[in-house]
Simulated scan of single mutants.
Amino acid sequence: MRISQGLRWLALAVFLILAAGIGLSWATDRSADSLKARWATAPSQFLEVQGMQVHLRDEGPKDDPEPILLIHGTSASLHTWDGWTAALTSQHRVIRMDLPGFGLTGPAPDNDYRIERYADFIVALMDKLQIRQAALAGNSLGGGIAWRTAVQHPERVSRLVLVDAIGYPLQSTSVPLGFRLAQIDWLKPVMRQLLPRRMIEGSVRNVYANPDKVSPELVDRYYELTLRAGNRESLTQRMKLRETDALSAGLIKTIGQPTLILWGAQDRLITEPSGQRFHQDIASSQYVVFEGLGHVPQEEDPERTVQAVKAFLN
């Protein structure tokens, strides 16, 4: 009798703990309009491209003959380039955007998140801004988009900056929890309603070499922009794709533009041997490795990493 009553109390306690956990993690979609006040302050603007209202920032001298486009990675946003932008806009026109499926831009109308589709999006954006040719810089997924654009539309890309870019089969030693969960089909209905802020914090800390640099505001940005309506579904669609295979090597070897390759030595998601392979496969490339930095070196230490970019552009 006492054992049975004790089990009932234990079951009730477990239920209450689970209910409290779900309550704290409950996170429904937020509209783009509700997020703009915090994440689309000046000089943000929205431009219609391919049926989307694309969130972008266009800064620096408009007469720059060679603008630079900054392309963020998976689950990031244009804000990841704040430090680089501040350092470059005195001499260069710098354009950065939230890619389809991420940030305030939100999901693509056709739900197509293949690399080649993103490359066409970059060119469509350049057309809208009346930019004939530009330098492209990208981190992670954004790096893959940058080099793929150079392959598909070589006449539109003057040079490349690849920052811990995708392109070869991954040899990850650690993958953020959020990325792993996004690949589990049966969790999709749950993940549309639940998003523990602590999980986002853990994922961001995972891609930094020094987790102490991950501030509450940084976690807020990743967390709130993930909640933008449609972004969680877009992430699951994107994570289903497997594009870093042997075929990429053949494409990468065709890149003829001058290329700067930057890598965080402590990147555990796309480990440093991938950077070496980019350098081997792109004939006209320079390679710089940053000790003490992880998968997003442009965000973790913008002052140190942008120096190599300045020298390359000038």
Rank of each mutant, 00 (worst) to 15 (best):
S4C: 02
I68L: 12
P297L: 12
E155C: 04
T105I: 03
S140R: 00
V175T: 14
V288M: 14
L12G: 10
I131Y: 11
A87M: 03
G138A: 06
V151H: 14
E66D: 03
E243W: 15
N111C: 08
V157W: 11
V161A: 11
L104H: 06
P216I: 00
Q193A: 09
H55I: 06
H92K: 15
K62S: 08
P100Y: 13
N210S: 14
L99Q: 05
Q307I: 07
E299R: 04
I184E: 05
S77F: 07
R8N: 03
Q280T: 08
R197A: 07
G6N: 09
L35Q: 05
W84D: 01
V296A: 15
P211C: 08
R277M: 10
A265K: 14
G256M: 04
Y208Q: 02
P61M: 15
L269N: 01
N111T: 05
S172P: 05
Y208F: 15
D127W: 01
M97W: 09
Q5D: 05
V94Q: 04
A40P: 01
I3A: 12
K253P: 07
R132A: 09
S34W: 05
G230P: 06
D127T: 04
G178W: 07
M1S: 13
A13L: 15
S274H: 05
N231F: 10
R221L: 10
T244N: 15
A311K: 14
I71L: 05
K36Q: 14
A87F: 03
R205L: 05
L47I: 15
P297C: 13
P154Q: 13
G73T: 01
